[in-house]
Design a protein around this nucleic acid. Sequence first.
DNA 1: TTGTATGCGTTATCAT
DNA 2: ATGATAACGCATACAA
Lengths: 341, 341
Amino acid sequence: MNIGEIARLAGVSRSTVSYALSGRRTVSDETRKRIEQVIAQAGYRPNAAARALKEGRTRTLGLVIPPASQRLTDMQLGFVASVVEAAARADLDVLLSPSGGDHDRSFERVITGQRVDGVILMEIRLDDARVTRLQQAGLPFVTIGRTAHPENMSWIDVDYAGLIGRCVHHLADLGHRHVALINRSAELVAAGYGPSHRALTGFTDAATQRDLKGITVCCADDAAAGQACMEQLLTEHPQITAIATVNEAALPGVQRALDDAGLAVPRDFSITGVVAQHWAEDFRPPLTAADVPAHDIGARAVELLQQRIAEPDSAPRHLLMAPPIALRASTGPAAARIAGH
Amino acid sequence: MNIGEIARLAGVSRSTVSYALSGRRTVSDETRKRIEQVIAQAGYRPNAAARALKEGRTRTLGLVIPPASQRLTDMQLGFVASVVEAAARADLDVLLSPSGGDHDRSFERVITGQRVDGVILMEIRLDDARVTRLQQAGLPFVTIGRTAHPENMSWIDVDYAGLIGRCVHHLADLGHRHVALINRSAELVAAGYGPSHRALTGFTDAATQRDLKGITVCCADDAAAGQACMEQLLTEHPQITAIATVNEAALPGVQRALDDAGLAVPRDFSITGVVAQHWAEDFRPPLTAADVPAHDIGARAVELLQQRIAEPDSAPRHLLMAPPIALRASTGPAAARIAGH
DNA sequence: TTGTATGCGTTATCAT
DNA sequence: ATGATAACGCATACAA
């Protein structure tokens, strides 16, 4: 079923059908009614490929996600879901490309075959080959996260440095003198993953400012690693009375390690950090933490991208999100820590 | 940059470039070399829309996911990730459509605008309008999960009934006489969600067979609900000594409720069920449970769909996955339950 | 071994 | 207010 068939059934020309559909020129009420009826009855929809070929745009967005092999974090999943939802609201389709490294067939196909009008890139590194590739391809794109030098591109990011800094200040205000940062995995840090680096900077700077003793450790994204990490921290740094973290997946393990050590939160030990709301609320007690507005971020990324597509030469825009730190129940005054029962 | 430009730069006709690319007719070594060089230098890639229009296929698969509003479970996420990865391996792109209800613009656009060669449907209900729609559209599709009457369509599903049944038999073998099933949410059950219904059937049948007292409850997909649900269960049915569950997201709450009640697993209480491997291993102690091979399922779904696309008239295929129940540490002999400390 | 011509389904320009 | 037709970029049947 194509536009010619509809035209034949309605007894008009193809262009009339096209115009009746697009409304780009006036069609008499009578013929438009007839055409609409035929279309509804035949269940016709314009062929997307033909339209894309003619119009030079696909009404499709590319979304580059980390390779499926590594499980997505809840926060990453939140980005994906909200991007897809926001795109659907704008009648845009989303093409997924699981691409991590430099030369990826899926990535190349998406950006260079004119399959999409623009691309949203996630999990940006400080020095990211995909960004370079996108720039040289001249395809509109927006990043969730940002490179080391993101001045001339559009991005939206969470202010990890600022937020972790505020967490440290909050702990300092409560009298904590020895605090630790539980970061993401060492691999991610080595790969130049932005959030990890910026969290580290924010932590170190704030600790220096408040003259705290700050320990920083890397931790893989799972409960087992979180437990091992927390246990080691308690053993090797007995003076520590609080942690800040950007590693939500480690939290269940952190909780176990504290339980096992007989440490109650927040009486004996305080926890804060930057994590998806769901993790903060599922912790016991609920975490004092910056809730990353993943849903909002995805929607904003789509908006930014739509603007870059509409006006490729307009000035790039930057959105640095610094959500408030929700005061819940996991932080309290520092107490000298006693080794558990 | 299009094929005509490449032809001009290489000093040949467009068809020669096309054939050099596709290999569907012999091109002299010399000219092919020259063409390849020009292509590499210009960074040319065939326009996907033009190719799709000409060939009548898009090399793209549609993946219909639940609307983003409701958080995806880890298992659902596993399906998505593995589908995308498997498709990428086969040089196929994946178009995401977040569609739940009957009339969804995104869904209609994807299936009726010839945007994809086939569709993978997730979160199938026993009576599913999207399946009906896909059948009448005549578009190849495969479902992860199955309807009440899935005979003449291709699907891949987890044998919830059989697996939960085996869990119950396992508990019965250990001497448990009063057991409960923690199902998914009441809304899902009311909507005719297959896994919930089949888990219920499997549970009830096995309980009857072994002459057990079986309690079944619904529970929303989060830790808080799990905790409330488990607390209520302990209060209202003090004889219960074990549960089986298909609700992985409720597990952290279940654990808390047991902790709070002073019940040790598996000494005082046994837990088993069907959950993603990650949840089973993160539980403490690790869960005796059927590990759903989400990764495998996504890959198989892509295979099935490729076959339906290649031979639309071939007989539909069905894959009912019944992974072994991994014996870990969360089930043990029944003991009379004593109300906690 | 290579070139020419046609059509895929649409939208838009030109003509009536 | 409507119709005929060209063009988007590609793959392929047909010619040479």
